[in-house]
């Protein structure tokens, strides 16, 4: 093949690569742009400050405060519960166990796999547990399902963060005669910003997921007060309103989608800033 043809091939592929990169990169702006354009006209103060009033679903007064609060409760509760479970696990796998031990390797593989299990499966499984325990669709049910969903995210993220701590810091504490637990507390101190990142990531995932809360959290127009009450969630509210034939209700779905998108963008951007800050510090 002549050098000219070889060069031409490279040029063609370079152009294709730039185009691919533009398409992939612009997809985010397309999505957010669509949501903004559709949602802004319907975004009112009532949307975020009021729960549905009588006749809300035929286009009358009200907002989706019930769903916003419900989502915050579900995601917040699940994140707290998830942290209580996943911090000890990642401490155990990374600090108590020796580097490269069989248990830590297989546990990490298991979490990688659990991370890939779709939320609908977690939802179905959590629903089965709820039936077994006699728990009806409620805030508690939603929290259980979302906790199952985010534990793998938390463990994996914490794992990555702990991996950035030099082994010598662990050895420094150990060689002062610290127990493994005391050493773990030193390392937790070191990775504090990383823990915030993990929290934000899983909170974001919890707040945005539908399939896990679909049958576990239920739906209600009231702002939940007790843990055994059914609770609306924002994504589910979007989903329900969207399927309404009434234009006002559909409009509210767009506005709700905009609210959810904004919440997620704030979470993701803050966690990104935290993550880069942490990296610079090390």
């Amino acid at each position: 093949m002549g050098i000219k043809r070889r060069k031409a091939e490279e040029t063609i592929f370079k152009i294709l690569m730039v185009m691919a990169c533009l398409i992939v990169g612009s997809s985010l702006f397309l999505i957010v742009g669509t949501i903004v354009v559709k949602g802004v006209p319907y975004l009112t103060w009532d949307m975020v400050s009021k729960a549905p009033q009588g006749g809300f679903y035929i286009g009358k007064e009200g907002g989706v405060l019930n769903a916003i609060i419900g989502s915050l409760y579900v995601a917040g509760g699940a994140t707290v519960l998830g942290l209580l479970i996943s911090i000890p696990i990642s401490i155990y796998l990374n600090i108590y166990l020796k580097g490269g031990s069989l248990l830590s390797k297989s546990a990490k593989l298991a979490y990688d796999v659990l991370f890939g299990i779709p939320s609908i499966v977690y939802g179905a499984f959590a629903f089965s547990i709820m039936i077994w325990l006699g728990v009806r669709a409620s805030l508690l049910g939603g929290v259980i399902a979302v906790t199952l969903l985010i534990i793998p995210i938390l463990v994996r993220t914490l794992d990555e963060v702990i991996a950035t701590v030099p082994r010598e810091l662990k050895h420094a504490a150990l060689s002062l005669g610290a127990t493994r637990w005391e050493t773990a507390r030193v390392i937790l101190r070191q990775i504090k910003p990383g823990i915030y990142t993990a929290v934000l990531l899983s909170f974001g995932r919890g707040i945005g997921d539908v399939a896990a809360v679909l049958f576990t959290a239920g739906f209600s127009d009231n702002i939940p007060i007790y843990i055994d009450e059914p609770a609306a969630t924002l994504p589910l509210a979007i989903f329900f309103q969207l399927s309404s034939p009434i234009p006002e209700v559909q409009g509210r779905a767009y506005a709700s989608a905009l609210i959810l998108t904004l919440i997620i963008l704030v979470i993701v951007i803050v966690s990104h800033i935290l993550a880069t800050k942490h990296k610079h510090k090390l």
């Binding site: 030099p166 010598e168 810091l169 050895h171 420094a172 504490a173 150990l174 060689s175 002062l176 005669g177 030193v186 101190r189 070191q190």
Partner: peptide, 16 residues
């Protein structure tokens, strides 16, 4: 370990 102080290749102060 309490009987021995270790000084490693690079200093690793505790985060405090």
């Amino acid at each position: 370990r309490k009987k021995m102080g270790l000084l490693s290749q690079r200093p690793y102060p505790l985060p405090m």
